[in-house]
Each structure stands twice: as structure tokens, then as C-alpha cells.
């Protein structure tokens, strides 16, 4: 059967548009979904495509959030300029930290990435006069998007704005992953040693991919700051990095749309389970993750292939 190009993307976009009309009173929650989707997409670029295992991606997200928040408080409330500032801050931190991080791998990389986040969190905490410290950065007032669409209390503008940003970033990531840079990142994930042998600048490719990912994570953070009009130290929380990783594994890494599916499943289960049982909802999340890791390690998107394999094995066994 011929594969329809961009079918998955078209279905996801249709679902996002439909969600606006189906859940008109949950727009804040769905906008939060979109922010997380963007953040997990940025993680997919480094982990799913380039094989960079990190538990410190919140550092890039948080820096983007603080940069955009401070820009809105002190310079301008223009949302698009704020996004650019968030992207620049995320990219700058990713480049600077990437120069060190990309020299390591495995457990060392994991530890160093966590360390970068902790340093950022401590800086934000200590610079109370600038960031508001543990109380968070307040006073963020956003101007209308493109000077036309005012942010409203219900979150309609915030939703469409976030959706537009996610779609634009998704397109950029799609192009990046199909470019020689993205393909070489996948080659590096397959075998960095092979890439070195054929003369590819592995280290600089990884730094470049990490920097692009930092820009996208920074945009996600900036978007969160703009739609919630608050930035707190939680943007640097270890939980944020860990949950993003879980969402990506859940959906399936290295496919972009796997990140979207992982976020939707995780956050929906999280939301519903926490409403049903506020004290034990983590058990449900834990069971979900264990099921996916053991039964379909390639994520939810790998389920059709797993079922197909099961049937094929059954047929082979039945054959005389």
C-alpha cells in the first residue's frame, strides 16, 4: 500500500483543531499539552535522532522561559520577539554547555547534563532580585500577537498561538531531520565510530544538533512563560527532564510524531488518573511505563509492528 506523505502530521493537526471545539473549557490544559509537545520534540531531535542521552533538557527550557519572561518584563511584551529571545537563550546555553557535554557520553553525559540544570536552577534561585527566586518571576504582560490578537482569560488566543508555534517548529524539525545534518545525526546514533572513519565531523555535528534542540526547547520555555505569564524555579526541575524522556519513550523516539503521541498519552493519563485517585495516580503512570518498556520498547507507535510480528510468528508455527 502506498504511503501517504505527511498523513500522520495532517491527522495530528486535524485533532489539534478539533480539540479547540471539543474541549472549549480546557484550553489552558491543552495549551500545556502543546508546550510539552514542543519541549519533547526538541528532546527527540537529540535523543531520538542523534542518540544523545540527556536528563538535563529542562536547563534549555528553563533558560528560554526566564529569558522570554525577563524580556517581557523589562523590554517588550511582543510575543514573537519574546520567542526569538527564548530561542536565542536556549541555543546559547545549548552551544556553551554542548561544547563540554558532547565530549562525553553514557553515564557521564547524563550526570553532566543534570549538573548543568542544577547550576542554572541555583543561579535563578540566587539571583532573586532579577528572577524573583522561589517566588517566581511576576509581572509578565503580553502584547497582542502580531498586534492584533489579545491574550484572553479563557485561553483562545494562547491556544492558537501555541498551536501555530508548534506547527512552525515541527516543520523546521522535519526539514532539519531530512537534511544532511539530520541524516548524519542518525548515522552518528547508529555508529559514531563509523562516521568518524568516513570523515564526518561528529563532535561539531552533535554540538550543532544540540544547539538547534536548545533553540526549540528555549521556544517551548518562552511559550510557557508567555501563555501562563509566570516563570518559577520549577522550569528547571529534574522531573520535567525525566517526564519528557518518559513521554518520548512512550510515543516512540526518532519519529517526531512519536513525541506528539507520547505527550498526549502521558498527560491525558496523568490528568485522568490524578482526578480519579489523587493519592495513587503515580502507580498508574508507573504501570503504563513498565508496560511500554517491556512489551513495546519502540513505543506506542511500535504496537502495530509488534502485533504483526506476533501474527507472523503464529502463522510460521502453524505451518507444517
Amino acid at each position: 500500500m502506498a504511503r501517504v506523505p505527511f498523513l500522520a502530521e495532517a491527522v495530528m493537526l486535524a485533532c489539534a483543531v478539533a480539540a479547540f471545539y471539543v474541549f472549549p473549557y480546557d484550553l489552558a490544559l491543552i495549551t500545556r499539552f502543546l508546550v510539552m509537545i514542543l519541549f519533547v520534540l526538541s528532546l527527540d531531535l537529540v535523543l531520538g535522532y542523534a542518540g544523545i542521552a540527556t536528563l538535563g533538557h529542562a536547563a534549555l527550557y528553563g533558560t528560554g522561559a526566564y529569558a522570554a519572561g525577563l524580556f517581557a518584563v523589562h523590554v517588550s511584551g511582543d510575543p514573537l520577539t519574546g520567542l526569538a529571545v527564548g530561542a536565542g537563550a536556549g541555543a546559547l546555553l545549548a552551544f556553551a554547555s554542548g561544547l563540554l557535554l558532547m565530549r562525553s557520553h553514557g553515564l557521564t553525559l547524563l550526570m553532566l547534563s543534570i549538573a548543568v540544570t542544577l547550576i542554572c536552577q541555583e543561579i535563578a534561585n540566587k539571583a532573586r532580585d532579577v528572577t524573583g527566586g522561589a517566588d517566581g518571576l511576576r509581572g509578565i504582560r503580553m502584547e497582542p500577537v502580531l498586534g492584533i490578537f489579545k491574550f484572553d482569560f479563557i485561553g483562545r488566543t494562547g491556544y492558537w498561538y501555541a498551536l501555530a508555534v508548534v506547527v512552525a517548529c515541527y516543520a523546521v524539525l522535519k526539514i532539519a531531520t531530512l537534511s544532511p545534518l539530520g541524516l548524519s545525526a542518525r548515522g552518528i546514533k547508529d555508529s559514531a565510530a563509523r562516521m568518524v572513519a568516513i570523515g564526518s565531523p561528529v563532535y561539531w555535528r552533535l554540538v550543532t544538533v544540540y544547539t538547534i534542540s536548545g533553540a526549540i526547547a528555549g521556544i517551548a520555555g518562552a511559550l510557557a512563560a508567555q501563555v501562563t505569564q509566570l516563570v518559577s524555579l520549577e522550569v528547571y526541575a529534574f522531573n520535567l527532564s525525566a517526564e519528557a524522556l518518559i513521554m518520548l519513550v512512550l510515543g516512540g523516539a526518532g519519529r517526531l510524531y512519536g513525541a506528539v503521541i507520547g505527550v498526549v498519552i502521558f498527560m491525558t493519563v496523568h490528568h485522568v488518573a490524578a482526578a480519579v485517585d489523587p493519592f495513587n495516580w503515580l502507580f498508574i503512570i508507573g504501570a503504563l511505563i513498565l508496560s511500554v518498556v517491556f512489551l513495546v520498547p519502540s513505543g506506542v507507535l511500535g504496537i502495530p509492528a509488534a502485533i504483526s510480528d506476533l501474527f507472523r510468528r503464529g502463522n510460521d508455527a502453524a505451518r507444517p
Binding site: 544532511p180 541524516l183 548524519s184 542518525r186 548515522g187 546514533k189 547508529d190 555508529s191 563509523r194 568518524v196 572513519a197 568516513i198 570523515g199 564526518s200 565531523p201 561528529v202 561539531w204
Partner: peptide, 29 residues
Amino acid sequence: YQRSMLGLGLVPQTRDIFPSLTVEENLTS
């Protein structure tokens, strides 16, 4: 990689094809 950029190209004995990439992607990478 610097030697490669100066014009040296090695075809390794082990071939080193990237399994997750198609033929065209291997070339484009």
C-alpha cells in the same frame, strides 16, 4: 574530518553502512 575536508576519502574494509538509513540517506548524510 579535517583530513576528509582536505580531500582524503576512506572506504573502510567493514563497509560501515548505517542500518537505519536508506541507500539515498546514507549518501546524503
